[in-house]
Design a protein around this nucleic acid. Structure first.
Length: 470
DNA sequence: GTAGGGTTAG
């Protein structure tokens, strides 16, 4: 296969960049067949990439009709599937890879372009983690050390990081002689994203980001960019380290880095988590371009600080700016209503989700709805909502219902909630404490005692509360 | 030569 050269062929390639619909795609494909372009690897790869974004099954049909596809074309299709279809079509990417491996042609062998996208796909879901480890072995087998390049290495670091194997990710990273910026960012974001839990080790990961950032600056080979700053700011947010966050913000300004939507959203989140809502608002106002995510972060910040009306104001603003709310928007906005007692407003927003925006409510949205009704004492309606919801309620939902039952002294519903909750997470001491408090509230001390016995039976220990003063 | 890795809110 060689490259096309006539102007007619170039016109065809230009059409590709303008193609929007399946119909357009079919017309271009017809042109490919009549002009003979379908025999050339380069235009075919453009066509495959485009068709996988418009209609994946059509891309696969085109691919099937290529007599002897080169590794180049396999790689194009694999990476297009991974980047356009996230985790939903990972099996297709791997079946193409299996075809490379089983090809009888000696020319069809995986190369360094095959692995980065497959390694990335392996981290999408635990189901594929095993395949990711196998890919690592294949890299050692098929890729010459000289070709074992920075893309392959960074993708493997990213894979181990995404499946929670941070030690493996770090040990691979440490063996890279001169990591480039993207490789540094892979590691830093892995630590930042794993460090948002509640235990001490998680916080240690965020502290490690701060140390690595210092180490990175000592290297004259790379200069931190916006992606690095997102990892740094997120780590400060995880640690509740306002000073560190302000320093990162100053670094951003001093080094002329852009306040893009990612950096802006992480700063809004940082300032909200550290209680500086006015700084969060200032960042929001200064952002040159605002997307749905940065509105979501701002709405959430307002929600947790109890500014329900203001949060709804931002939600309305998002809509009037022509932005499309996503499922996170509804989680944060309905919980803003919930925390401020704006029940009817919350109910209206919930029902507009599917009716106006075509977003099917997930379990977390029903959780918000149950919380909204429950907190305001409308427990009967909350219970009705649980009965009618189309999926199985999760532990968070039952916990919220249990909390509402406790606040409103509804013993019967509290017991129902706890029964379900213990079925889902019998080891969580907080659930027993909530029920015990309900019994204590109505002077049922024998039941308080029974709840404590139940905890012992299930071998659940409640660690004593500690208050700290900083 | 064309194909490959890194970022946000719950």
């Amino acid at each position: 296969m060689t490259s096309p050269s006539t102007s007619n062929d170039h016109r065809c390639l230009n059409l590709i960049s303008k193609c929007k619909s399946l119909e357009n795609l079919k017309q271009i494909h017809a042109q490919f067949l009549t002009t003979g372009l379908s025999h050339h690897t380069f235009p075919l790869s453009k066509l495959l990439h485009l068709s996988s974004t418009v209609c994946l099954s059509y891309a696969l049909t085109i691919f099937r009709r290529i007599p002897n596809p080169s590794v180049f074309l396999y790689n194009t299709l694999i990476s297009s599937i991974v980047s356009n279809h996230q985790s939903t079509q990972t099996h297709l990417a791997f079946s193409l890879y299996a075809r490379i491996l089983t090809s009888r042609s000696a020319a069809i062998r995986p190369n360094q372009f095959t692995y980065p996208s497959l390694s990335k796909a392996s981290g999408f879901h635990p189901r594929w983690h095993r395949h990711g480890r196998a890919l690592h072995a294949h890299v050692l087998k098929f890729i010459e050390p000289v070709n074992h390049d920075r893309f392959v290495q960074a993708a493997l670091v990213g894979f181990y990081a995404n499946c929670g194997k941070l030690r493996a990710a770090r040990s691979l990273f440490d063996r890279i002689i001169k990591p480039d910026l993207a490789t540094w960012n892979t590691l830093l974001s892995a630590y930042a994203n794993s460090g948002d839990g509640e235990n001490e080790n998680d916080l240690g990961l965020s502290e490690e980001v701060l140390r690595l950032f210092v180490e990175m600056q000592r290297s004259s080979l790379v200069r931190p960019n916006e992606l690095t700053l997102v990892a740094l700011i997120k780590s400060c947010a995880n640690l509740g380290d306002l000073c560190g966050g302000v320093w990162a913000h100053a670094y951003l300004l001093k080094n002329n880095l852009s306040l893009n939507q990612f950096v802006g959203t992480s700063l809004i989140d940082l300032y909200s988590k550290c209680g500086s809502l006015s700084y969060a608002r200032k960042v929001f106002d200064e952002m040159p371009v605002r997307d749905t995510s940065c509105y979501n972060a701002m709405i959430r910040g307002l929600a947790v600080h109890g500014f329900g009306q203001e949060a709804i104001g931002f939600y309305k603003n998002l809509i009037s700016q022509g932005l499309i709310p996503d499922d996170a928007t509804f989680v944060v906005t309905i919980s803003a209503c919930s925390h401020s007692g704006l029940v009817d407003e919350g109910l209206r927003i919930f029902s507009s989700m599917e009716a106006v925006y075509g977003i099917e409510p997930k379990v977390e949205h029903y959780g918000c709805l149950v919380d909204l009704l429950g907190r305001s004492g409308r427990l009967e309606e909350a219970e009705e909502c649980i009965e009618k919801m189309p999926m199985k309620p999760n532990a968070m939902l039952w916990r919220s219902f249990l909390g509402s039952a406790q606040v409103h002294g509804d013993l019967e519903r509290g017991e129902i909630a706890l029964k379900h909750l213990l079925g889902l997470e019998f080891e969580n001491s907080g659930n027993y404490v909530l029920l015990s408090n309900i019994y204590a509230g109505v002077d049922r001390w024998t039941d308080v005692e029974k709840t404590r016995e139940l905890m012992k039976d299930h071998r659940v220990n409640k660690s004593p509360g500690i208050s700290t003063i900083n």
